[in-house]
Amino acid sequence: MTAVLEARGLSVRRGARLVVVDVSLVLAPGEAVALIGPNAAGKSTLVRALAGLLPPSAGEVRLRGRSLKDCGRDAVARAIALVAPDEAAPATLTVAERTRLGRYPHRGPLWPFTAEDDAAVARALERSGVATLAGRPLATLSAGERQLAALARGLAQEPAILLLDEPAAHLDIGHQLRLFRVLDEVRREGVGVLAVVHDLPRAAAWAERLVLLAGGRVMAEGPPATVLAGPAAGEAFDVAIRAEHLAGRPVYLFDEKPSPRG
């Protein structure tokens, strides 16, 4: 399995602070990786650096074996889609219009959109479950619907790599399940998917591989059961993690660690 996206000894600064420290990881085509870690672990920063939005202070990110900085903006945007909680999109922009802007990397500022773009947009809207909201201005959507609209834009890019920063944050359980099913669908088509997931049981249920980030460093990496059962996870979140099995599926239980001063 060759890596489509790879970080080698990646360190990223935000201001004076080193937020990501010497991270190496690979993402293969069709792979589902969940990036987990406590608050302020550097997850969002790492995802943005992987998308080429933040320059490395050391190390590099490689896209299909080539350093991102040699790839060119357009090529990177065609290969990597980043879906992050959006705060800025104009209130009167419709879901369909926002999704269509996902075709920008393919057409640039001047070329007119084609039937191919229309088809990609229609597919993305359908898949994300927001086709019925296509004509609605963003301001009229719930937080969860906005999140699905952001996903639709990412899918419309038809990337080789889909990076998501907390894609399920505002979604109810039904929409969460739908979201992760959609991620599985695109993954089966060969897209490498890496998502920051806060909900550990959800991350464990969905991902093939967990990457545990704490203090900007990768503390553990591997199959969900291994990572969550290992000492690093409990230490990173400062909790005790226990796995039980229910109906043949692992169920994780989390307990606060007793404080040393009792």
Partner: peptide, 22 residues
């Protein structure tokens, strides 16, 4: 003629950059 650039820009710096806009 450059209206699409305005549209992409209006999505916010991060999303615009992620779509390949300088």
């Amino acid at each position: 003629a450059a209206a699409r650039v305005l549209d992409v820009l209006s999505l916010g710096d991060e999303e615009a950059a992620a779509l390949g806009l300088p």
